[in-house]
Amino acid sequence: MKETTRLYSYYWVLPALAIYVLLFILPMVIGLYSSMTDWTMGIDSIHFVGLDNFRFIFNDAELLGSIGNTFIYTIVVVVFKNLIGFFLAVAVNVDMGKRVRVNNFFRTVFYLPAVVSTIVIGIVFTRILHPDGLLNGFLNAVGLSFLAKDWLIDTKIVMFTIAAVSIWQWSGYHMAIYLAGIQGIPKDYYEAAMIDGASSFQRLRNVTVPLLMPSININVILSLIGGLKGFSEVYALTNGGPGHSSQVLTTEVLAKFGEGRWGLGTALNTVLLILVAVICIPLLREMRRQEVEA
């Protein structure tokens, strides 16, 4: 044991570490510093202003609103992308007899939205979610008119609508990761469980889920980061509107940069980083612990 441990050398980490530190960590540290300056396009000199930008952020109702929206959006997408992704992965893995092509067909179709540019998503879903669009048309046709809404206009639901589009786009992507995990589970585990007389739900609970912990971790972390740093769906569907009702942190960052307020923009980015780190790192630690136990 000791013999081999000595064989693993940290030199192997160096290539990755070198480019990562030079091209990511270093700029990030410079960015952290900029977030404490009044750096703005066109001013003559840049001054250190301490925590002024952060004070500004936490006193600005619009920016606070964007933080709130970021949370709502994140919670919804994490829960549903994972539930749906997992369900799809299990479903497209169900033995359909000799009809393997059926499984492959579903796997491909569900993955398709992930490869499509958000520009398309924006223009297409703007029409589908239009008050006279396909979705409301469908709801009215099947007698569910009471569910028909102003999907992207009603400020109470706009964040959920955007989250739903994101779920539409990315569930298949998460399905693919779950699927890779499920297919990595050896068949004999299931056969043993079947001999023990386990029902298919029991097999799911006692074999699939525990052995799938690594995939679950990846998917939860990925969707969490995707939610907190989510940008393109919001940008393409409403760009924060109507008014400021669907602004999230990342769209505010773009807006601040667009106004040439780089100090404030980087400060918002720093807030985002702290927020993401505070949520994700403890979660990751906990999940790693579970993974070992599993």
């Binding site: 990511f24 990030m28 980061i225 980087t266 993401v276």
Partner: peptide
């Protein structure tokens, strides 16, 4: 290394 998945990229310093 994990921080890299969380932090937004800083374009100008890069």
């Amino acid at each position: 290394f994990f921080i890299g998945t969380l932090a937004p990229m800083q374009i100008i310093p890069t």
